[in-house]
Structures are given as structure tokens and as C-alpha cells.
Amino acid sequence: MAQKEFKVVLDGIKLSADAEKRIEKGIQSLVMQELAGYKPNPDGPVGGPIKVGPIPGRTFHIPIDWIGIIARDFNLKEAKQIFRF
């Protein structure tokens, strides 16, 4: 997954501490505005519907419900029996 960082370099400019705070707050606010409507991108490298499948380098892992927060790992044989694929 590519890391995306947005930077503004103010070279040779000394801003007041208040101004720097306002800029920082403004950037954070903009990021939050954009993220608020975030949904997984179906065109992205890991987008699309959630599929049951092996996680590279991991055992078979499937989120299941348990008070809304749980995950469990299965081995491939178990998973094939349960999900019949």
C-alpha cells in the first residue's frame, strides 16, 4: 500500500506560532472532511467486496461476529469445510 504524505514547505518564512497552529488545524480539518465520506475504493488494489481468503503469510483468517468485535483464524482445511469453496 502506497504511503501518501502531503507536505507544504515554507522556506525562509517565519510564521507566528498562532499562524502555524491555524495552518496545522486547517490541514487536519480538511483531511477529516475528506475522510468522513470515505468508503473502501472498489478500484483500489485491495478494493471490492470483502472476500473470504487467505491473508498472505498468515493463517486463514475470517472476521466473525462476537459482540461485534472478534476475529478468528482457521486453517485452510477448516475454512474449506465451512465455506465450501
Binding site: M1, L35, P40, G44, V46, G47, G48, K51, I55, P63
Partner: peptide, 9 residues
Amino acid sequence: VVQGDNTVA
């Protein structure tokens, strides 16, 4: 954020 494969970035 939760990604399309249900992992969290």
C-alpha cells in the same frame, strides 16, 4: 480506515 479487504490501514 477499513480497506476493501477488511484490513485496517
